[in-house]
Design a protein around this nucleic acid. Sequence first.
DNA 1: AGGCGATTCAAACGCATGATTGAATCGCGC
DNA 2: GCGCGATTCAATCATGCGTTTGAATCGCCT
Lengths: 223, 223
Amino acid sequence: MIESRFGPNGGNRLPQPDTKNRLLEAAERLFASEGLSRTSLRAITCEAGVNVAAVHYHFGSKDELLVELVRRRIAPMNEERLARLDAIERASEGGPLPLEPVLRAFVEPAFRFRSEMSGHEQLGRFFGRLYAEPEEILESTLREIFEDVAKRFRDAFARAVPHLPDDELDWRFHFLVGTVVHTLMGRREMQAPTDDPPPDQEVIDRVIRFTAAGLSAPVEMGQ
Amino acid sequence: MIESRFGPNGGNRLPQPDTKNRLLEAAERLFASEGLSRTSLRAITCEAGVNVAAVHYHFGSKDELLVELVRRRIAPMNEERLARLDAIERASEGGPLPLEPVLRAFVEPAFRFRSEMSGHEQLGRFFGRLYAEPEEILESTLREIFEDVAKRFRDAFARAVPHLPDDELDWRFHFLVGTVVHTLMGRREMQAPTDDPPPDQEVIDRVIRFTAAGLSAPVEMGQ
DNA sequence: AGGCGATTCAAACGCATGATTGAATCGCGC
DNA sequence: GCGCGATTCAATCATGCGTTTGAATCGCCT
């Protein structure tokens, strides 16, 4: 049976009459500012201006909304990371990789996607929350989305900092992630609450400087 | 009116018949493994083997239990940090401070308190959650507990790495906290789930190596 | 022995949550 | 203009939540 035309409601030409996307955006905003488990369905649908039942109609459940949100937000960020890493590896032709570009390929997409987000720069906090709040429903999704990135970048760092033993490399990659996530979450220990946020590129450069030094530190305890 | 004797129930000689501490320990365990907002009072009291009403009798509310838990756990850790920093500053007699000991004074108490915890090494995750889940009730408590530590260590790092401008120092201190918190949370990106956790001192040394290099990196963007 | 304050307990409260229902509404294709 | 699937909506469900209550229990002190 041929799909005679498209579905109803504009026939998939307008994929949704906005409801689905408005739900995703409202959910992202609230998840970021209130936390995953502290955000109720009613708060989301109220913020989106739609009925409560819309969530279950379009996504099936609150959990599946969250999974869909992760797929839409995190996956593209990781694809950009991998694309940039591809370019670096292609340019190096099997030789050692330059550390700073690899670092930037990992760090910059995270900040870029944060600020690209429709007006509000909450994606960083949402992103950070994924690490902090253990939603078992997300475990497999996150693993699936981050597995490639983790593996590819681990190997890239191994080529960029070849003097490191494997276990030390794993740990330093872990520390890098901690630095990035904590910074995306936007908590500054010493910042006066009145200061306005600094431009992304400045923060990125500081992160790169710090982590590049940490990653390339000698492995012997020379101090 | 003279406090004729002590209170009832052993007259404060046994401060509580265990209930209060059992609640705190059960709460800490569950907060750490399940998250702050996903842990119910009933789960806590069930785990502790006491009645639900005991929480309100001893603490007043779930939130106040959390605050009390923070005071009991985090405050001593920070006191040890400050004591160690005092010793370092006393030994330096106004001169520049050695970076690595200052770093260790900040990092080691966190890991030590984690493993000291009655059998379970969950304090790290609990500690990490305090950063990740924004309980507005904790905001003032956490600020009060961490304010001194943040200020004192910021100044110490300024003396240990004197070539850094103030804003760069603030950021690097932020990155250090991110590294520590993320590591305390215990998520390893590359670790097989079957591996058993490495000894604390080994992890501490790796953290110190990484952050010492990051903190003392040159501030110019010299690749 | 008896009184009394500290503590425990089972039961219930009101409320917010995630989920579900079934009818109403919409808008295209026929 | 009619039918039909896609979509919205108000209303409702059962459940679990934090909290409160009031009576029972415990153990020291006089």
